[in-house]
């Protein structure tokens, strides 16, 4: 494998793992979910590099997209609960 390509692969994977680490270590729910979505999209990018465009599309749309949207709703609820309940007009189920 050419060195340049290896370097490219290493950067790709290092970024992936750093994103995963950041998502896992972030205690703030909204931030964690955003990082998770970024992780999912980056994963899709890596899979496109591995010549799996179908699956890259699916991961971006379903894994990161739908999964992320679902989690984001939950994260927003969690954040609202943390910000002492009772604020007007802001709390949605």
């Amino acid at each position: 494998m050419p060195t340049l390509l290896l370097l490219f692969d290493l950067v790709l994977l290092a970024t992936l793992i750093v994103l995963a680490l950041a998502a896992v270590l972030s205690p703030e729910p909204r931030r964690a979910v955003m990082l998770f979505i970024a992780f999912g999209l980056w994963l899709a990018l890596v899979w496109a590099r591995l010549r799996a465009p179908d699956i890259a599309l699916a991961e971006a749309a379903i894994g990161a997209g739908m999964g992320g949207a679902l989690m984001l709703a939950a994260a927003r609820r969690a954040a609202h609960r943390d910000e002492a309940a009772g604020r007007d007009g802001d709390k949605r189920a």
Binding site: A20, P27, P29, A32, F39, L50, I55
Partner: peptide, 25 residues
């Protein structure tokens, strides 16, 4: 926290899927 557990399990799943994609390459 449940949300963190859920993110964790999705990342673990992503890892397993990644192994499959890697061996397909």
């Amino acid at each position: 926290a449940l949300l963190r557990k859920l993110i964790a399990i999705n990342i673990a799943g992503g890892g397993v899927f990644h192994v499959f994609i890697a061996i397909a390459y």
